[in-house]
């Protein structure tokens, strides 16, 4: 299967060959200017089979999932979903991750759910800081929120935590 076919199969919607490169998606993308390749370029690269360059790009991690692109595409190409698919493929295939902090944040967030069934914000932040080594940013803000009583170390958890952990283990790719 070609890279394009694999991506289309996972998107399971309109195939991305439907794109006629009008760049409307890119014109409205809030992240396009800081992406290495803009959304339309990524589509072209997928069409051309440039698997490694796409999966190792910063773009897939800098997409904010704002869904503006798919909302405006005249051909119903689901670019936002394509970005999800590309991230998933990059993680599964062990590609070099161009934006490690973004992945470390997602991992910390998901670990926090696995732990308590619900997000405990201070716990999630501690996990992220340990993973990323970025120990000092936002500490003042965190302490401020703590003093305001917005953050607490113990928050209500899901009682049936095994049900949640079971979802994690059964969806592991």
């Amino acid at each position: 299967m070609t890279f394009l076919e694999k991506v289309n199969e996972r998107i399971n919607e309109v195939p991305i060959q439907r794109c006629y490169h009008c760049r409307k998606c890119t014109a409205g993308c809030p992240m396009a200017e800081i992406m290495e390749y803009n959304p339309n370029k990524i589509i072209k690269m997928v069409q051309l089979g440039m698997e490694k360059a796409v999966l190792e790009s910063k773009t897939i991690w800098l997409c904010a999932s704002c869904e503006t692109c798919v909302t405006r595409c005249p051909n119903e190409v689901d670019i936002a979903r394509m970005m999800d698919v590309l991230r998933e493929m990059a993680l599964e295939g062990g590609s070099r991750i161009a934006e490690k902090n973004v992945v470390q944040f997602h991992e910390s967030f998901l670990s926090s759910i696995k732990f308590g069934g619900r997000i405990n914000e201070p716990l999630m932040m501690v996990l992220y800081k340990l993973k990323s080594g970025d120990l000092f940013s936002d500490v003042v803000m965190g302490v401020g929120m703590f003093l305001k009583g917005k953050l607490s170390l113990v928050s209500p958890r899901t009682k049936d935590i095994s049900a949640v952990r079971n979802i994690f283990s059964k969806t592991k790719s």
Partner: peptide, 19 residues
């Protein structure tokens, strides 16, 4: 339990539906 938010759908589609 938590809906999984961005972190689930950005990394694992099935998890983002199952949660």
């Amino acid at each position: 339990s938590c809906c999984g938010a961005t972190s689930a759908h950005a990394t694992n589609f099935k998890l983002s539906v199952a949660l």
